[in-house]
Design a protein around this nucleic acid. Structure first.
Length: 206
DNA sequence: TGCCAGGCCCTCTTTAGGGCCTT
């Protein structure tokens, strides 16, 4: 699988941090990219059948009234499973979104076959001089224009694409690595930070 | 009842602790 192939970049808004403690997805946003270009998108609020806390209403701008008027989770997640197909996926702090994807799809007995990449892990390796690795900080760090509408699923997934393209451009520009397959980023994200320079230099010289 | 995340990453580490990220 190469970066030239399709990749679905996704982001969940949720009622909290842990599906194991009963937290649920309330919005999913995703874009399909090919060669770094957005070619399709998906955005849906979903009604989890429970109310969200005032903190989450404030944090996301998603109100209980909005969710009450939204399609149920099982319906939206089934549509999303169709959208993803067998594509690989990317998310900022992917372990978080993967946990919710797994939990929500398990509720409706659906599966997926793609694998996840994490832009947070890649950023910690490539942008080692960034002040921190929050999505909003990275958007600023790589000089991407933003209207600041973070914490909505589609907006964050689009911003993740922008950061992702900047990460790939940095790998190309700093190391002369022009072909960046999915598996290369998987190996990069398992490489200790101190060894990243040597790792990418070796890739270039192979 | 009241408590409860999970995984990565660093360091004064590995018989551990705490900050960073995601909502």
């Amino acid at each position: 699988m190469s970066m030239a192939d399709t990749l679905v970049v996704l982001d969940f808004e949720t009622t909290g941090l842990s599906p194991d403690l009963g937290d649920r997805a309330i919005e999913i946003g995703a874009v399909r990219i090919e060669r770094g270009n957005v070619v399709d998108q998906f955005q849906k609020l979903m009604n989890p059948g429970c109310s969200v806390s005032p903190f989450i209403e404030e944090y996301t701008g998603i109100s209980n009234l909005m969710l009450k008027e939204s399609a149920p989770s099982d319906e939206v997640m089934a549509e999303f499973a169709e959208f993803v197909g067998d594509s690989n996926m990317l998310a900022h702090n992917a372990s978080f979104d993967k946990r919710f994807l797994d939990a929500e799809l398990e509720r409706i007995s659906l599966n997926y076959t793609g694998e996840f990449l994490c832009s947070l892990l890649a950023s910690r390796r490539i942008f080692q001089n960034a002040p921190n690795h929050k999505l909003a900080t990275l958007v600023d760090f790589v000089n991407i224009p933003s209207d600041g509408s973070f914490h909505r699923a589609l907006y964050d997934s689009v911003m993740t694409v922008q950061v992702w393209n900047a990460l790939l451009a940095t790998i190309r520009d700093q190391y002369g690595v022009n072909d960046i397959p999915f598996a290369l980023i998987q190996r990069l994200n398992k490489t200790p930070k101190k060894s990243v320079h040597r790792f990418l230099t070796n890739v270039r010289d192979q």
